[in-house]
Amino acid sequence: MNFNPDVFPQAPSNVYRWAPVFMEPMNGSGERIVVAVAASGNGSSHVEQTVTSQVIKCMYGEQSAVFAGLAGLVAEDLQEYFATGGMLESWIAPFSGASLGPIRPACADSVEEAARSGAALVASLWRRPPDSAVAEVPEEDAPTVEVERWLNQIRYAVLQKNADIPGRFNYELKRHDGISTRLGYVGSRIVANFDALVPGANLSRKRQHAKARLLDLQIVRDFDSHMFGARAYELMLWLPTIESVEYSDKMIGASNSAFAELEEFGGKHDIKVRGFNRADEAAEIILHAEA
């Protein structure tokens, strides 16, 4: 029998490296679910999420939003890590319940195909997306709430009710060590910073930005406590409502998970972290404190 090599298709010539990303549904339990597969190589990378929000809802019911949010944060953190040129083996998970599995090679026509081939091997809950799947709307085309706009909305709501409030918005505080810190509001009884946890691909960066504002409050309070005296220190964050039609359940869950992390961090440093979806609610906190 004559063998004709032309009968068989050529194997893919590109070699990629991929690894599963595990997450514990209950932190410390040891139980692990593959929530994503990450692949990189040949100057490209891809993160394939392997559990849909619908599946998570079926599995965890009322607790699904938290798990979906954390799974989304893991994928976003990996995407941003790859965007900065990070290597797959050096990635560090953003929280203790997530971890990277063993790294394996794969021959594929594209990095997306390498990740999906890996998902088919290790993720029982993953289903290959159809070729006609509709792409997600880019973040720049989605409605957003800018931090500056959030601050201005709160300022307007406060001054509408009390134009003589004893405080200043967007205040640059010059400490006696020569360092300047800009704060959202500095009043006689409350000091506040403002930020917005807008869902989307850059949520991890927004979370870090909000944490920086939280640290600014901590530094000012600890450094100048003798000058400020007994004041309240708060970080006031915009959050999407659960009824927000412009965001998916997964995106809203991710924002809520980021908020829970910041709330816990603030609690350890005696700084209140609050979430709002309306400026007048945040304004009432300031007005009540200054009354």
Results as ranks from 00 to 15, higher is better:
G43V: 11
G69F: 05
W126G: 00
A142E: 06
M227Q: 13
Q10L: 11
R213W: 05
V147D: 12
G97W: 00
D280W: 05
A142R: 14
H46I: 07
N202L: 08
N2F: 15
A93C: 06
A98V: 10
A232Q: 10
A115P: 03
K250V: 07
G97T: 04
R175W: 15
P240W: 10
N277E: 09
P94K: 11
P138Y: 04
K174E: 15
P129D: 13
A258H: 01
G28C: 11
S53L: 05
V145R: 11
S90D: 11
D77T: 12
I286L: 07
S99Q: 09
F3W: 10
A114D: 03
A283H: 00
G200W: 02
M26W: 08
E140G: 03
R128E: 15
G97Q: 00
N27W: 12
P105R: 07
A135Y: 08
L235Y: 04
P240L: 11
E76P: 03
A212Y: 13
A210L: 03
S225E: 07
P94T: 07
Q160M: 09
A279F: 11
A210W: 03
L235V: 11
R104D: 06
G187I: 04
F276E: 02
P129M: 06
D280V: 14
G41M: 03
L239H: 05
A106D: 08
V66F: 12
H288E: 14
E112V: 07
A192H: 01
R278T: 06
R175Y: 15
